[in-house]
Design a protein around this nucleic acid. Structure first.
Lengths: 191, 191, 191, 191
DNA sequence: GATGAATGAGGCTTCATTCAT
DNA sequence: GATGAATGAAGCCTCATTCAT
């Protein structure tokens, strides 16, 4: 928000970049420090351990992701536009953090509490999206007999794989792909 | 199945278990050795390094997965039955190897050649499934205007997330879930 | 001499001691570290591997040896005094580094480039000494028909064996032997 | 002696080749076994450990060397011919065993008893050669005021370095060099 | 006797973490 | 607060040695 980012946030952002590129173990504290433009020791002034840094980084990323989803879900658009927006934003987020979104839940290096917290967040996210489906039904944009849980799974699973494939196939090239056909495909199942 | 398994395969199977549970870095060679019931040194009689072991393990798992998919795709059933079978088998495979299927491509610890090989396998798998969609169209089981690439992405993405969520929510409990509703949901988009 | 030695040099000097006493393989990095009064890890801050440490140590020793020889060769004394000085200094050097001088070229654990460098240094040293012989001839201290290459080989070979034998026979006892007779013997062949 | 060499001797000869080329530590038991054309386990049927094998190999080499020297020293030739023969035979021996002769005494991996035995052998060898000098004096081939110990040191030191240099410079090429000039140089000091 | 698969002690190396400046 | 040199626990890997066949 402010023009002056504090050190902590700088390090956190460097962490996102490094951890998502290299994974927990191959990311060295030194790499993060360099990326943040500080010395190794400085990292330890803001985070007590590599674990904690990793967890805080996840929190940071997950919260940003949740924020993005919330904005879309609570927006004014109809359901198709919302799903389309989800797709686009998800793609942007992935391009920034590469595998983060998917790797995160598989990473072993989080505390039990953290794992629970992540599950909580995921659940929260799903509920949010299920709410979106429910609203769609009420507004007549979605068939009444659609199972909202199934719908969310299918939408998000499709998006994940769509962008993972795109990233895999066009690695490096920042080409903007058009998820419209995918969204239309999904709408056929929903409407 | 057979009473006589050679050491290499024993170690490979132990690797699948250990690596998929702990990830590359947290899995110690000693863990694998113990799981295979041999001494640390023995692992090195069959694999020249931890890296190689990991890669051979992936190969082993990917090939098994591909075999399963092939059996289904080339089977006699109609498209809905095939997707249902894919779902069930995918679920079984995941239960065995947990996160393997999804973590694999993100793992940093594979050689460039291996990464290419995996991408090749993925591409192969997708082509196989696209063929399945195409056949479905020809048999009138799938609408003609369905994009086969989109369809495969949506099907597989949905399956991945469906079982990931299930594993997350019922971790440990080997309860058999019923993917019929998901398949029916997908069929609405396809038919 | 100076009160302030940098860590790198400290470790290098400890290496000379340890490697020359124990040889490449029997010298443990931990031994070197302890001899230098630092922790194992510290060695790796200054040298990337045991190999590199070994090679740098050789460089260090060879350069000191060459320096000593140069001082003598370019000094003001006559040829007999120079050979005597070479003998004495060689003995002192050996007492410090024991077998270093002779073992070095046979050690397997040097890179090809290093081996070439050592050969280059040896060649350089021989040329230096041949120059000394040539000067002796010009000053009438050495017969004109003496082959300078043969002369250098005989002088240095005699010195090597003389001190090796002495070290072997009086191992430990730092008794100062008198190489005068050997020098006089060599002078009979030269003059 | 017999046309059929027993296994033990075969392994011993393979050891000479391997140890002299690679040094104690870099020579693997497997290398020796392969060179001898037997399996690893077989080596242990004849030698209880790598150490013992190494020591027996040294014994074998030293005894052969001593035998060669004895033949020359007790031969009928005059002193110059004997020194010449020593040079030629020493060169041949070195070409076969490369650095063996010089590396042996520096090797750390011999028991205290072995080290003592080697020193004993060396002393014996030197006494033999000093006897040769003494005989030369008695026959009037060598000046009376020559110190026999010094003479032997100078002769053998010169030979060692002469052939080491030759091997270094013409590594690989089996060219027969002519040590006559060196011998004549030494004779000037002796006569 | 001969074999070579299995073993596990031991050493090099990495890197998270500390702490004096 | 910031730094980065020093530390040492921990893990991969090698290879001498054993032993069942």
């Amino acid at each position: 928000m402010t023009a002056v980012k504090d050190r902590r946030t700088e390090i956190l952002q460097a962490s996102v970049k490094i951890f998502s590129k290299q994974g927990f173990h191959d990311a060295k504290i030194d790499d993060v420090a360099q990326a943040a433009g500080v010395a190794k020791g400085t990292v330890y002034q803001y985070f007590s351990s590599k674990q904690e840094l990793f967890q805080e980084m996840i929190k940071y990323a997950v919260e940003r992701y949740t924020f993005i989803v919330k904005e879309i879900v609570y927006g004014e658009n109809d359901i198709e536009e919302k799903i389309y927006a989800l797709a686009v934003k998800h793609g942007e987020f992935l391009k920034e953090h590469i595998e983060m979104a998917e790797v995160v839940p598989h990473q072993v290096n989080v505390s039990k509490e953290m794992r629970l917290w992540i599950m909580e967040q995921k659940k929260h996210l799903f509920l949010l999206l299920e709410e979106m489906i429910e609203n769609g039904k009420n507004r007549g944009e979605i068939r009444k007999d659609v199972d909202k849980e199934i719908a969310v799974i299918s939408i998000m699973g499709s998006l994940f794989l769509y962008y993972e494939k795109e990233l895999r196939e066009h690695r490096g090239m920042p080409q903007r792909s058009e998820p419209k056909p995918l969204v239309e495909f999904l709408m056929r199942a929903l409407h």
